[in-house]
């Protein structure tokens, strides 16, 4: 079953909260992981590893640097499903 973009955003917000303490309601599509949410590179990799497991997708390392905002990540995960 593919997840909707809304479900992915919710799931991602939970992961971000769990790993970094950022409130789930602050994890919005337009937010930048580094500039707005203050997430460092190791925490970003932790989020990626958890998101891969949660949504059963693969996010290659070379793609991670393109995921500047939460919206970028949601879009990538949605497209990578199936």
């Amino acid at each position: 079953m593919a997840h909707t973009e809304n479900e992915i955003l919710e799931g991602l917000a939970e992961i971000v909260n769990e790993e970094t303490g950022v409130a789930t309601e602050d994890v919005k599509l337009e937010k930048s992981f580094t500039d707005d949410l203050d997430i460092d590179s190791i925490s970003m990799m932790t989020i990626v590893v958890n998101a891969e497991e949660k949504f059963d997708v693969r996010i290659p390392d070379e793609e991670v640097k393109n995921l500047a905002t939460v919206g970028d990540a949601v879009k990538y995960i949605a497209g990578a499903q199936n």
Partner: peptide
């Protein structure tokens, strides 16, 4: 290997 916590070394 892919599931290893990136914070493992620190």
């Amino acid at each position: 290997a892919r599931r290893v916590n990136p914070y493992t070394v620190p």
